[in-house]
Structure formats: C-alpha cells, structure tokens
Write a protein that binds this DNA or RNA. Structure first.
Lengths: 225, 225
DNA sequence: GTAATAGTGTCTATCAGACATTATAAC
DNA sequence: GTTATAATGTCTGATAGACACTATTAC
C-alpha cells in the first residue's frame, strides 16, 4: 500500500488522513405466497434485535464481494448479484465510530432463503419490517422502489417465479410486488410479446387450463437469483 | 473515535481492520449555447492532464460537503446540491493505494462556472471529454443519463435557462440535453400545463414574437443551481 | 409586399381501458 | 348440465404525430 509517494497540496500522503470504516448492508427481497414482498433480516451480533445483513469491507475486496460474504456467512445464501443503492454518510450515524455504509439490494427466489437458519434469520414484510438500526429502513424503501421500477413493464425480470408460469401467476406476482392491481387486459397485451409459449398447460385449476409461458430470449434467467 | 468497545465475532475492534481512503469525484454539467452539454474538468494536481474535480473525504464530513469543498477550492463554484451516482470500488483502481471513489453529479447554470480560473479549468463536451483518469468517463456517462432522465418530461427542472424563457428556447435546451430532436407539437402540449405565462414577450426575433413563460409552482427554482 | 416564427385547430393512427364472446376445464 | 377461468375480439376515449391555418413580427 501507498508505495507511490503521492502527496497532496498540503504535502500530506494518503496515510496521513483519517479513513472511515466502510460497511455494506443489503436488503435481500423475495416474494412470499401469502405475505407478499418480504425482506431478509438477521439477528444482530450484539444480540439486541434484528437488522439487515451486513459486514465491514475487507482489504482487497469489492463491495459486491463483501455483500456476498455477509450473506453467505449470516444467512447461508450464496451466488448473489447485489446492486448499489446509496451511501449513508452521516458522520454520527454509528456510535462505534466513523462508518460509511453502502446500501445494496438483491432479489432471490424464495426457496433460496426459506428455512435457512430459522433461529437467526427471519423474513419480514417490507411494509412492516420491525424496528431496525442505522439506515436500514431507508435501504428497504430504496430497495422496494428499485424492484418496483424493474417490474413495471417487464415480465418477472428477476426470475422470482422460475422459468415457466401462467400469465395469471405472473400478474399476481407483479401485483404483490408493485402493491397495486394491474389491469388484466393491459397486462396481457404488454407481457405477451415478451413471452414465448411452451405448449404446455397448467393442470389442477378450476376452469379452462392456462398455457405456460417462459420469458422470451433470456433463457434460464429465472434461475439466476 | 471508537470509544465504544465494540468487537466483532473474531474479537477484533473496528480499528483492527484496514480502512480504505474515500474520495469523491463530481461531474459538474452545464449547457453551452454552441457546444451543447459540457462537463467541468480541472487540471490534475500532479500536472498531468485533466480530470473531474474531486477530493478525499475528511473526518466528520459528509460526501456532499466534500463535493462542495472540492468544487469551491478547485473551480470557484459554490452552493451546489450534488447527487450520488455510484461507488467505484475496484481494489486496484488507484495506484496510490486502496481508494474508493463516490461519483457525483451536479448541474449549474453556465454563468456560474464560465470564466472561472480558465488556466486550471475547462469545459468539455460530454461526448468527447478527452483522456480522463480513473472512472471519470464512467461518471460522466452516468451523470448524463441522470440528467437526460430528469429532462425527459419536465421543463428545465435544474433551471439552466433562468426563470423566463420562450418555449422554443426551452425545447432547444431539452434537445441539446437529451441529444435528440423533440417533436414540436408534443413538446408544447406536454410542457404547457407545467408553465405559466408571464404576459411578457421576447423581442428582437425574426417572426412573430414568442411569449415568455416561467415554471409553474416552483417560483425561483431556476436560480438554485 | 415576402419571409420567418408563434400559436391554434384538426385529422389520424395507436393504445389503454372496458366489456363481450368463445373455449375448456372442474364439479 | 353449471361454474370458473383462459383466451380472443371489439368498441371507445385519450393522445402522440402530422399537418394546415392564422397571427404578428422583421425585412
């Protein structure tokens, strides 16, 4: 480190300045059949209450790597693709010292996080996430905004439904994510050109069986998260 | 600092971890009558070439304060309202050591930065900003995307034109910012309800004089940046 | 007068919203 | 058969795009 003898206009090197600790905190979102959009919380290391999974950035590590490490260690979830939301930088936001936190969001299929370490993790509805420390409530809000924007006009871009689904299943998922009813006709007309038929039919339903579709073009995208 | 005896699961305190230096870099955008959308660049402190204005974050300072300080010192521009874009975190991105950079964007009226320290600052078109170090080209790209989204359906939200303008002046500004022609009819119909007439007329033009408008509701918003 | 630009009116194609109709299953 | 849901067709109102027409200035 700092082998390059850089000095600023005051003649000081990088090492002469105090540096903040940098943390990452992540809102991992998924869709619960009953509850709707839920966020993963972990028991805090000091034992008091719950919070979003997070960790301090290690040397030589990217933010995304730190996010993946924290989720692997704290919730047993691996292979994520986190996205930055915002840097929380109030100098007094953490009483342990000067800590910046980079809020992230990630979206995963429900089976990836259900029944993982149930005593130290829980899934809470995004509208009532409970009492959370730091800026975690703010991170959840930004995460939900991000997800709703993604789901405004594309069919399940984060693959929460898997690869094959009926248009009704797709619409119900979008309604639970965006929190408002979607027009049935408009929804089909908008999504149809972005879907391709599988030829298969859903079974065990009440009326005429619905056709199963998959996302057009993005083969296997649904297994990403 | 670190008066709280916090220890993590390995028994280490915050001070035991190496911490990154944190920098801010800012794309200050404005509109040049001839050139179009331009970005402010400053001569680098090591003398080699040009870059976006930036600085290292000081203790007890927010990111926005660091941005304001860097622009005040390096370009004589004050009173800005920067917005975060992205954290650049590649561990080897800066050969001076471990440095994270938070990219920012801000938009100011051209007279705020023109003829400020012309030997150490310059304005370059955003499409051809020259050779830039670090992630500065990426920051400019994100800054332009941000500005184009802001200008997609609202009349000059950052007040680049001042408080009073004709609809033609407004449309030309939007065209230079978004980089594509805007439909004349649609533009008037979209913007008209968001404008209020001043009763005054533009003078010295070729044909029928155009009415001057101001933004509806947001009195004085144009003098912000 | 002519040329140029501002502002208004109108036609049309597109599309969201609404509703009707037909198809096909469970019961 | 009845009931429920899927899929398709059709009508309507709103609006973007296009163009015509009038108004008012410089020259």
């Amino acid at each position: 480190m700092n082998t390059n003898p850089y000095r600023d206009s005051s003649g000081r090197t990088l090492a002469d300045y105090p540096r903040p600790s940098v943390a990452v905190d992540t809102a991992v979102l998924t869709l619960d059949e009953q509850v709707g959009l839920v966020v993963l919380e972990v028991r805090r290391t000091n034992g008091a209450g719950w919070g979003l999974p997070g960790t301090f950035l290690h040397e030589g590590e990217t933010l995304a790597d730190a996010v993946r490490r924290s989720l692997d260690v704290k919730a047993g979830v691996s292979g994520l693709n986190p996205r930055q939301l915002h840097v929380f930088d109030a100098p007094d936001r953490d009483d342990r010292g000067w800590v910046l936190s980079v809020g992230h969001v990630d979206v995963v299929r429900p089976e990836r996080i259900q029944s993982r370490a149930p005593s130290t993790t829980r899934l809470m509805p995004v509208e009532r996430p409970g009492r959370l420390p730091y800026d975690h409530a703010d991170i959840i809000e930004r995460a939900v905004d991000y997800l709703r924007a993604r789901y405004s006009d594309r069919p399940d871009p984060d693959g929460l439904l898997g690869d094959e689904f009926t248009i009704l299943q797709l619409r119900l998922a979008h309604e639970r994510i965006t929190g408002r009813a979607m027009q049935r006709d408009w929804f089909r007309r908008t999504m149809d050109p972005q879907l391709e038929p599988t030829g298969l039919m859903a079974t065990g339903t009440r009326g005429r069986p619905a056709e199963l579709f998959r996302r057009r073009g993005t083969a296997g995208a649904g297994t990403r998260g």
